[in-house]
Design a protein around this nucleic acid. Structure first.
Lengths: 196, 196
DNA sequence: TTTTTTATTGACGCATCAATCAATAAAAAA
DNA sequence: TTTTTTATTGATTGATGCGTCAATAAAAAA
């Protein structure tokens, strides 16, 4: 009993299923059947809408990136000062929507896959550039350019590093301590004074 | 014309081949034949010595970890002050022997694989604990415990973060700027003053 | 009402690999 | 010299999984 206009519904369901499958397996070694099953459809349908597995994975990463971008824009819009902008970018990276076991696993897996796939690498570079630009949008209002560059790079590395290290632990991600760590760094750098 | 005492030679060759194969492919998706071919033997021989592919990969990660540990111990032995100990740990992580495209790719790939394999996760946790302990061995001589803990965690995150971010770039790894970034952080934290 | 488009799947072909095994041969031990 | 151990591989098997295709059916268009 095929209803019309299913395409966007299925695409969304398949992408969500991909994320949760990757989250559970902890890698991109998930079968099309597994993903399709989770989405409640046949693997043939997944191929029908996405063509090849690569494209489904690519669409999934793009979706994750898009969500992060949306959240970041919203947070930046609410930030009043440059200092708040920096904190906003950090906070979004460790927000409940982003800093989930599933998403973290996906990030990691996609980083690895990017070694093979040129397109995926391009996508992740866009993320890196965007993150840098978002951080700089706050930092340039506080520090001289050279210093701002350095702090932006360190902050980005800290974010990625805390993500990857998080993957080794089990249990619920502790976003609070991650944020505290980065904020401590920022405070030191921006005020020249660390937390007591 | 089988010569006697080949086992250690083959094991070493196979592990080296595994690293270079992973480096080229950028992931653990390398076939036993590919690895064996690089080592100049048949895939059957690889199975003969390592049993299953898992075990070869495991042995490879253990080898990488062991090398890092050896290098670190040597560097720590040459460090005279606590401050030098911290720098030594950082320097080794970005030394020519460690900060190579091949090794970086392997680290990344193994991090992902650790999501699936309990043993591998245990191995990587050992690395994390050891890194922390090595950093603390210097930091506790400079900062109060709580502060030292925080700086150790941040430094570890920076190291891992710079590794993962390195994987996105192409060309030769730039260890110098990575070290500079971390040293700048350490200077700020330990002296309360950043580089000009 | 007939035709086309959209949705959907079960079955299948085909390729890839990990792992096994029987076979070969040289060295070492008995 | 016979036997055992060590080294080595080509061929094979069995499983897995991507992608395709023909078939089915409802909705929409003609």
């Amino acid at each position: 009993m095929p209803k019309i206009g299913m395409e966007p519904v299925r695409r969304k369901a398949l992408i969500d299923a991909t994320i949760s499958a990757i989250g559970e397996r902890g890698s991109l070694d998930v079968t099309m059947s597994e993903i399709a099953g989770r989405a409640g459809v046949s693997s043939a349908l997944a191929h029908h809408y996405f063509g090849a597995k690569d494209e489904l994975l690519f669409a999934t990463m793009r979706h994750i990136l898009a969500e992060l971008n949306t959240d970041t824009r919203r947070a930046l819009n609410m930030a009043a000062t440059p200092r708040e902008r920096v904190s906003a970018v950090v906070a979004v990276s460790f927000s409940d929507d982003q800093f989930q076991a599933e998403i973290i696993a996906a990030w990691l897996a996609f980083y690895v896959e990017a070694q093979k796939s040129t397109e995926l690498r391009r996508l992740l570079r866009i993320y890196a550039r965007r993150l840098n630009s978002n951080l700089m949008s706050g930092l340039t209002g506080i520090l001289p350019r050279t210093e701002a560059d350095r702090v932006a790079e360190a902050t980005a590395a800290l974010i990625d590093g805390l993500y990857i290290r998080r993957a080794l632990k089990d249990g619920t991600p502790n976003a609070q301590s991650a944020i505290a760590l980065i904020e401590d760094y920022l405070e030191t750098k921006l005020n020249g004074r660390s937390l007591p």
